[in-house]
Design a protein around this nucleic acid. Sequence first.
RNA 1: GUCCCCGUCGUCCAGCGGUUAGGACACCGCCCUUUCACGGCGGUAACACGGGUUCGAAUCCCGUCGGGGACGCCA
Length: 430
Amino acid sequence: DTDRERSTDEAVRVILEGMQWLGLDADEGPYYQTHRYDRYRQVLAQMLERGEAYRCYCTKAELEAMREQQLARKEKPRYDGRCRERTEPQPGIEPVIRFKNPLSGPVIVDDQVHGRVVFDNAELDDLIIARSDGNPTYNFCVVVDDMDMGVTHVIRGDDHLNNTPRQMNMLLSLGATPPVYAHVPMILGADGAKLSKRHGAVSVLQYQQEGYLPDALLNYLVRLGWSHGDQEVFSREEMIAAFDIKDVNKAASAFNPEKLLWLNQQHLMRAPVSVLAPALRAHLAALGVLVTDDRLLEGVVNAQRERARTLQDMAQNSLFFFRDFEAFDDKAARKHLTAEAVPLLAALVEGFSALPEWNAGAIHEVINAVALRQGLALGKVAQPLRVAVTGGAVSPPIDITVALLGLEKVRARIKRALGYSSATVANGQT
RNA sequence: GUCCCCGUCGUCCAGCGGUUAGGACACCGCCCUUUCACGGCGGUAACACGGGUUCGAAUCCCGUCGGGGACGCCA
């Protein structure tokens, strides 16, 4: 949080809650770099004293001119170290502090993903480690933190690979042993361009809101740049057991929302009711439905788990279980709630009402018997019934749906459907 | 522009000198089926290009091209 501008309470909260939702917990921390400024200043003073860092009095205009010239000469823009020998303060200028990077020689990064990467010190410049207001910068803070906190492994996106030699130089200068580095490939947007808000670079919490399971998101992400045979679906435990940083690829990968959706469904099919039920309850609540019947909630989870790709879908498609639908789906009603359906629905109500035991098996037999008696295919009876009790043409298996709904609601809804049928008959719309 | 990284189906991965180049998502058929799904079977689809090395290259080397990243008193 060394950047006062961007490090808002909200930004911090989103990170912490996102990690918590994913179940990615930490043994210590979190640590805030703003709380450690005294320590950074102490190291800064020490480096200044030892000549490992120096004050730079260059103005922004001067720096800008330098940059322009270098660009014009087709060179990599970088600070030329002109203040290295300048010892006298410049009046009216608050200096920044720069690290005195070695002028030559190689810096070798033995990266766990990329292998050996060699940089030339001549390519590196003296980076600013403290701003003119005295505040330390990120690249310096992390170095001090890595040293102080005994960090052994740094695993981060490979956009940081270029920072590594500078950080190693500072660590070496401070007499610390650099940690092991592993730079994992970046994730690009679905269009192959850098990930942006447009295509997926949203807060982790947004995936929660959209009805993804944390394990599914983790599963999707872990398979980017990594694999374990032909296995696609991993439980959290399986990921942990199979993963090895050494098996990670070097190439960036594109974010594919379709596959995430598929994986989420796979996890929805496998997850225990104990995790799905509360999650579905929350998504129903977001749609304005407060669930009071836990048995029903669990039944719905099991009935819907393989036909929803997100919990949001599941909630949306399950509304009719918890409250009466406002109107029949037009197309479905016109097709199935016909005059021919009236006697069928009447027979079903009769059959259901006479049932000594209320369960899917018994309900199935009633539907079957009605179809048989009328000489109709099962679908000819099932569809009108489905539209009658759910309002639409899509639902879990009709016997299970009816069983979950209960006799009372089923009777009321069929009665309502009979009203619809006779109304259309009266209007000559059949 | 300079430096660094990367390059197998549209996408995610397998492949580690000899394979009909394999799996998954998506897409297209067919099957299962009371709807929708799930599931099953089959199909379309790739080694960026050019040089080497080798009896033999997707696999090794070089170059080209392409993509990404870094180059900030941001992190």
